[in-house]
Structures are given as structure tokens and as C-alpha cells.
């Protein structure tokens, strides 16, 4: 399934793309968190990770339903999530990175995302798009908790044992190259910013950077140098991992295309 671009105005198309970016981030990260179920380091953390996964899934559902309406091609939330192939997915590369059964990876990925997501949802409270502002009003409360949860773990792991410090620093060094994509501006983002629908991506950087510095300092971790940043996810150019996520996630909808669940 591809977006039917003929029927949408350029504004609608940009909004649709923008909503897919927001929704796909939530769908994919929620999926990665769900993979932890029953395998977390402590039972309390099984509950916490599922909780974050559930929040993101709820956000995704609201956003995807709206995206389907904007698109106007009769696609509901499930049609958009379960029937698009990878090159139509618009999530940032950061969220599709695998867990590798390593809690440090899950926490660093979550923290880099949450620190950004919190600023984004806060900015979306002021969106000129009433629907998006309403979704943000609910999301921002959830994301506040997510950021607190991942920040606290960054500090515990960074300022815990020598082993945990090493593991979380390694994960941070490895995932840092995916942080740049969060702040990239392109035609879609520029158009959203101009219409007052979404914040300009670069406007979120200072606050994000400050949060990162504050938490890393408390965690006694070093902020990696900004080297070459990986990007492309928001335009459908993903790594090899997304295909496997979708193969698993979309299996039933693809194998039984005429079924309702």
C-alpha cells in the first residue's frame, strides 16, 4: 500500500507524512519495548517497559487514525501499520535499533528518544492543528514519565558499577550517530513549522542537548563527539532491522488478508 498522493493537496500530503513520522516512531519503539516482555532484569522493569510500550501504542493509534482521515483513502490505523512496507515507514533510525538483549541499549535508545519526544510533545501543545494539540495534551503526561524513567536508569547504570558504566557508555557511543536525524529539517518539517502545526526540528535541539548534558553529568558519562550522523528513516531509507520487525509484526495481516481480528 502506498499513499495515494493524487487526492491530497500539498498541505494534506505534508501533514500526512508528518503524522506517519510521529506514528511510526511510536509503533516501532513500542514494538522494540514489547520484545522485552518476560525478559527484563527485574519484574518491576517488565512492568515499566510494558507500560511505556502501551503508552506509545496508544499514541500511535490516535495518530494513525488521524493520518488515515487526512489521507482520505479509507485506511484505518491497522491498514496503515500492518499493510505498509518498509520503504513507506517514516520512523527515525534510532527507534528501530535492536535490543541485542542488552538493557543498556534499550535504556540509551529510550533516553535519547524521550529527551527529544518530551520537547516535541510539549511544543505540539501549541500546535495550530487542534487534533494534534489534543493528542499532545495526553501524550506529554506520559512522555514526562518516560523521560524520568529512562533518565533515572541512565544515572543508575552510569553511576553504578564499573561494569554498568562501561556498558552504558558503549551503548551511548554506539547509538549517538542516530541522534542527529531527530533535528533534521526537510521540506515536510519546514512546511509544518511554517503552518504552526509542528515545531521546527532545530528549535528542539537546545533543550534536548541541555537535558542530555544534565543527565550524562549526573550519570558520570561522557557525551560522545558529534561525528557523521546516520539518517534516512524519515524518508523511508531504513537499516536492515526494520524489515524483520515488519515481517514479524505484519505476519497475520499479510498471511490472512481477508480476515478481521
Amino acid at each position: 500500500m502506498t499513499a495515494d498522493t493524487e487526492k491530497m493537496t500539498p498541505e494534506q500530503q505534508a501533514l500526512f507524512d508528518y503524522l506517519l513520522r510521529l506514528g511510526d516512531n511510536a509503533v516501532v519503539l513500542s514494538h522494540r519495548l514489547g520484545e522485552w516482555c518476560g525478559h527484563a532484569p527485574v519484574l518491576e522493569e517488565d512492568i515499566a517497559l510494558i507500560n511505556v510500550a502501551l503508552d506509545l501504542l496508544g499514541q500511535a493509534r490516535s495518530i494513525m487514525t488521524y493520518a488515515g482521515e487526512v489521507e482520505g483513502a479509507g485506511h484505518d490505523e491497522d491498514a496503515l501499520v500492518y499493510r505498509r512496507d518498509g520503504f513507506d515507514y517514516r520512523n527515525v533510525l534510532l527507534v528501530e535499533q535492536p535490543n541485542e538483549e542488552n538493557f543498556a541499549v534499550a535504556i540509551v535508545r529510550q533516553f535519547l528518544f524521550d529527551a527529544w519526544h518530551y520537547e516535541l510533545q510539549t511544543a505540539l501543545l501549541q500546535s495550530s492543528d487542534a487534533r494534534l494539540a489534543a493528542i499532545a495534551a495526553k501524550s506529554v503526561k506520559e512522555v514526562t514519565y518516560h523521560l524520568r524513567h529512562s533518565s533515572e536508569w541512565m544515572v543508575r547504570l552510569g553511576d553504578g558499577t564499573a561494569e554498568s558504566h562501561g556498558r552504558v557508555q558503549e551503548a551511548l557511543d554506539d547509538l549517538w550517530r542516530f541522534s542527529g536525524e531527530l533535528f533534521e529539517a526537510d521540506a515536510v518539517e519546514e512546511r509544518m513549522a511554517a503552518a504552526g502545526i509542528g515545531p521546527h526540528p532545530q528549535s528542539l535541539y537546545a533543550a534536548w542537548s541541555e537535558t542530555v548534558d544534565r543527565v550524562l553529568a549526573e550519570a558520570t558519562l561522557s557525551r560522545p563527539e558529534d561525528g557523521w550522523m546516520q539518517s534516512g528513516g524519515r524518508n523511508g531509507r531504513h537499516g536492515e532491522h526494520l524489515g524483520f520487525i515488519l515481517a514479524e509484526m505484519q505476519f497475520l495481516q499479510r498471511a490472512y488478508p481477508d480476515a478481521r481480528w
Binding site: P41, V42, L157, G160, T161, S164
Partner: peptide, 13 residues
Amino acid sequence: ERGRWVREAALAH
């Protein structure tokens, strides 16, 4: 086993 270092870190912290 995979979570051992995490629990140890939380206690140490």
C-alpha cells in the same frame, strides 16, 4: 543472568 549487572548497578548506585 542477563539482568544481573543491572541489578548490581542499581544496588551499587
